[in-house]
């Protein structure tokens, strides 16, 4: 990402907005090497800052390293606050650690970088992605139905074109996941 862009706002403004909402790695590529710019850029935590003109290999190495560091960060983070033990997980709940059986998980809801785990009676929050969490459990009853939701198929009590019922709870269903879900539940 260049720092000087068209218009009044800069690449640093893009980075600030990115960092407020998301966790995405980025690399600055700029000919600006003055202290003020470097200080502003540093504050946004870029993965690298190859100064123009750079060689092709310099950019590629910066990208490879950024991706590798990001992968390591994600793989660490998706376990944060969760310990997996056989058919259960241990999650932090305020000042204690609570055991939650996988079969008791009704659904998952993503909230930015966090994941809310809902059982019939409680909610626990961990730092994770939906796919990262499901993959790490290897529990095939949890099924993604929306960009922000996954449900335990054993709790599904009904569905409409755009929602899933889990007894009294209704969660949104994306069209893109509906066909796969119907096939999984053998609904034709």
């Amino acid at each position: 990402m260049d720092i000087n862009l068209k218009g009044t706002r800069t690449g640093i403004d893009v980075a600030v907005s990115l960092n407020e909402k998301l966790n995405i790695p980025f690399i600055y590529t700029s000919s600006l090497g003055d202290k003020t710019t470097i200080d502003l850029a540093k504050a946004t935590n870029p993965s690298a800052y190859p100064v123009k003109p750079f060689k092709e290999e310099q950019l590629m190495v910066a990208i490879e390293i950024a991706i590798s560091n990001f992968d390591k960060k994600i793989n660490t983070k998706h376990q944060e606050g969760v310990a997996i033990y056989n058919d259960a997980i241990f999650v932090k709940d305020k000042h204690k650690i609570v055991k939650v059986f996988l079969t008791d998980i009704m659904y998952l809801k993503k909230c930015e970088n966090y994941l809310d785990i809902y059982t019939a009676e409680e909610r626990f929050t961990v730092r994770s992605t939906i796919n990262g969490f499901i993959d790490s459990l290897g529990f095939n009853k949890l099924y993604r139905i929306h960009k922000s939701y996954a449900v335990n198929l054993d709790f599904v009590s009904g569905m409409t074109q755009n929602s899933i019922m889990l007894d009294q709870i209704e969660v949104p269903l994306s069209k893109s996941y509906a066909l796969d879900l119907k096939s999984k539940l053998r609904i034709f």
Binding site: L5, K6, G7, R9, T10, G11, V14, S17, L22, K147
Partner: peptide
């Protein structure tokens, strides 16, 4: 090419 373009593209990619 600019701030708005970049933010829109990111939002589109991430839906």
């Amino acid at each position: 090419v600019d701030y708005d373009d970049a933010i829109q593209s990111i939002e589109k990619i991430l839906q």
